[in-house]
Design a protein around this nucleic acid. Structure first.
Lengths: 245, 245
DNA sequence: GTCTATATCCTGATAGAC
DNA sequence: GTCTATCAGGATATAGAC
């Protein structure tokens, strides 16, 4: 029986794959800037020089790691969106589009298996890592597909001005990425699916509920704005009274 | 007239302050791991060794940078929450609590001035930086005050189970941090406040609208879950038909 | 393809003169 | 307090034997 790594992979794969796997693990754990080639090659049990031989350098390596997962994810998302758009036509809803966004990721995570939710953390990292190497690559590979989803959302939410929709999507997608990237997605999924068998729908349902709520929030209302201004004014009065006590 | 840096600060301040200012700028721009002491001391126009003399090291330096802003912010938030709770009593609403969270940050940003929104980006960075040095410090300094806000939200949203509230707050706060940290907050504020004079209320109103919507979203509903499962099943059928074509 | 050994550079940190 | 000079170590990357 082959040795098992933490993420449940066998170590009998070829050098290139072992490097990719080890890099992915360390990227999830520490982020791009914090991981060194020495850490990677040590974890992968390969020679230090093999990274440059197979990939050319650290930057090309992380791009290969990202590409391995996200090219497929991107593809699946777009195909699913196509399928839903052609079968639903004008009946397409916000929930359909959200399913097209999240279902492929959950399928790829395959969170029935052991190392499942780790892929969701990987996705979260990819979207939240501060390194410009990662950011630029992700932006470059997603702007095209993001446009498709933007248009689809616009179709299901015609009352929202484009600019407002852009802000709300930015808000909501940032939230999802942050949730996925942050601590213990395993526990998150477990909490969601406690005692339920159809995990996928439950997880999507929980995230979609919040996203739909945010996307469908009422547009800024002058009356509410006035109410807010009153609260702020009262708050200032309270603080003034507090500090002069 | 003193030389002006990009962020509008004079360069005549003392060494310690110049180091703090330069570090803050570079932290906003590149994140903790990516900035070097040489970059910092060069930007601050001070000697390399002065960082270790005044602060003791890079780790202590970033903690001083974070502490300088966030101690005050934390303090202001809690005082405002206290004031609102004592004046509103049982009439405290979700919007009140959100004002207590956001108003101090906007006041500290002072975004009437030139370098204003930069502070919001700083806050976003502080909450999203991947470095464990930053994460641990922020977590350590915020868990106490987070508890206070958690309880306040729980009071205004009694129908939400604690665990669900925790998840939704995590979701919403992550979204806010992501929005602030990401590109061009200047433009964001400008877009929000186009042609309006009372910027604070507008910005808070926009963010609060989405947060209130997410926090008040209906609880997971078996009927909606079934609808979602139907969508997923249809999606699978469509994809199967698509790939066998 | 894989290895050892090493080149080159940059990092944070410090010793010691002034 | 501030400077110069430097240390020790880690970073990526590569040359060259096998």
């Amino acid at each position: 029986m082959a040795l098992q790594s933490v993420s449940g992979r066998t170590q009998s794969a070829d050098t290139k794959t072992r490097i990719l796997d080890a890099t992915e693990d360390l990227f999830v754990e520490f982020g791009y800037e914090s991981m060194s080639l020495r850490q990677i090659t040590s974890a992968a049990q390969v020679n230090l020089a093999s990274v440059n031989y197979h990939f050319g350098g650290k930057e090309a390596l992380i791009q290969a790691v990202l590409s391995r997962r996200m090219d497929k994810l991107n593809d699946e998302r777009l195909k699913l969106l196509d399928a839903l758009q052609s079968t639903q036509g004008a009946a397409l809803t916000c929930e359909h589009v959200l399913v097209a966004m999240f279902l492929p990721a959950l399928r790829m995570a395959g969170f029935d298996e052991a190392g499942g939710p780790r892929f969701l953390r990987f996705l979260g990292r990819a979207y939240t890592d501060v390194s410009s190497v990662v950011q630029d690559f992700v932006n470059g590979h997603y702007t095209s597909s993001l446009g498709r989803f933007f248009d689809a959302f616009q179709q299901t939410l015609p009352q929202l001005p484009r600019q407002e929709l852009g802000f709300r999507l930015h808000f909501a997608m940032g939230a999802v990425a942050g949730v996925l990237a942050s601590s213990n997605t395993n526990r998150l999924v477990h909490d969601f699916t406690r005692g339920q068998s159809d995990d996928e729908a439950v997880v999507i349902g929980r995230l979609a509920a919040l996203m739909v709520a945010a996307l469908n929030a009422p547009l800024p209302d002058p009356a509410q704005l006035d109410a807010l201004k009153t609260i702020i004014a009262r708050a200032d009065e309270s603080r003034a009274a507090e500090s002069s006590r």
